[in-house]
């Protein structure tokens, strides 16, 4: 299980633009490096990062090996209604991890 860290406000006023920060522990192995035995280390990357807010997709990212290990993203969204913000990462083999953050809009 990958470690996930989310930084997001718990409450916001309607219409406020809030900052969301999401990090997942992942090697983002490029496939260009060699291990101690001289053999190439297989590529292993997260290819997709998606964020939904109250069921609507608000942010998406297509990732390539140029993204550093333990990918972190900071982005913004406008608070509208109270609801779950779901962060979901999917790797090249289709394995996925997700985390939900509840936002209360006053």
């Amino acid at each position: 299980m990958a470690t996930i860290r989310i930084a997001a406000p718990d409450t916001a006023s309607a219409g406020e633009v809030i900052e969301l920060k999401a990090l997942i522990q992942h090697p983002m192995e490029t496939g260009y490096r060699s291990g101690p035995d001289g053999k190439r280390i297989e590529r292993d990357i997260i290819e997709k990062f998606e964020v939904t807010y109250d069921g609507e997709t608000v942010f998406e990212a297509d990732l390539r090996p140029g993204i550093a290990a333990n990918p972190i993203f900071t982005f913004y969204t406008r608070a509208t209604t109270s609801g779950p913000i779901v962060f979901k990462w999917t790797d090249q083999d289709g394995e996925s991890w997700s985390e939900t953050h509840e936002l209360t809009v006053e």
């Binding site: 633009v17 490029t30 807010y53 609507e56 997709t57 608000v58 942010f59 990212a61 090996p65 140029g66 993204i67 550093a68 990918p71 972190i72 993203f73 900071t74 982005f75 913004y76 969204t77 406008r78 509208t80």
Partner: peptide
Amino acid sequence: SPHAGKAEVSTRIR
């Protein structure tokens, strides 16, 4: 999406 409110993204790259 227009929902973002602000068109700014930060990350870390190689």
